[in-house]
Nucleic acid binder design. Structure first.
Lengths: 139, 139
DNA sequence: CCACGGATTTAGACTACGTCCAAATATCGG
DNA sequence: CCGATATTTGGACGTAGTCTAAATCCGTGG
């Protein structure tokens, strides 16, 4: 992931049908190269020192645009954003894309293998998170 | 999940070393019986109509307490809490419990089975979320 | 070269959510 | 009943995210 130069970035944006404005390139420079998983606000904070006058709204809009165009993925995994589950035994979760509702999936409904082969980590807990939509819903 | 009466709830709290105050029972009444996966604020909003003067701080503290005592689980899955990932191809994630850092796990490092057997859902995407701590870290 | 119109960006107001703290209150053991 | 401890309170505070109307940018056709 060698730091791409701006021409590469611009080409990449245009391949995805995105007009390459200065702000968008500045945002892409950071967010397309990072190993982190930044929140929108973290992206804003990271971009701002180099490009002092990007407004928050632009960063939020741009990240949304990049996601629609397939340059980024949104993960619902932000630390500090907690939801409580009264079912304490292990189970998996389904998240409905339309409503955001979270539903339980029984532990035995899915099979996960090779977790014990992961290197360098003490696993406390794991689960599968499935995203999609429920079938047979009135649209 | 027949609505448990207050005596059951009180017994359950005490089994977990929690003193059963009126506020705690009111919170437990909702959060231990729900099928939803409410955020702390949603719990507060749910409890407040029946028990008008519970402060937000109490709800937050109590949920934290219930979690420590094993009555609840915290899920980092709150809708609207988004983090961006420039790696758009499928992969899994590891979340470090100490730092909250999110790291990628290659798709092939884990094996997930039976996803296609899930009933009633169109799966768009799925991943394993592993939580734990990295080994061999200076503490 | 200029003017036009759509695309993009902007500042800042606004809301929601979560944290923190010192003071008030409730509860328990003796 | 008393004092000590546990619990709750309200309200101030900070941060993250949304929204909007106005300003600006930029490619295109004339």
């Amino acid at each position: 992931m060698a730091a791409p130069n701006d021409n590469d970035l611009i080409a990449r944006l245009e391949q995805h049908d995105i007009r390459a404005s200065a702000q968008r390139v500045a945002i892409a420079r950071y967010v397309l190269a990072t190993e982190d998983h930044p929140s929108a606000d973290e992206v804003w904070k990271a971009v701002t020192p180099d490009f002092p006058m990007v407004s928050r709204a632009t960063v939020y809009n741009t990240l949304q645009l990049f996601t629609e165009k397939g340059l980024l993925r949104q993960l619902v995994l932000a630390e500090g954003c907690i939801v409580y589950d009264p079912k304490v035994e292990p189970h998996h979760h389904f998240v409905d894309d339309e409503t955001g509702a979270i539903e339980d999936i029984p532990w035995t409904a899915l099979r996960v293998g090779k977790v014990d082969e992961l290197e360098g980590v003490d696993v406390r807990d794991y689960m599968v998170v499935v995203r999609g939509r429920r079938k047979g819903r009135r649209r």
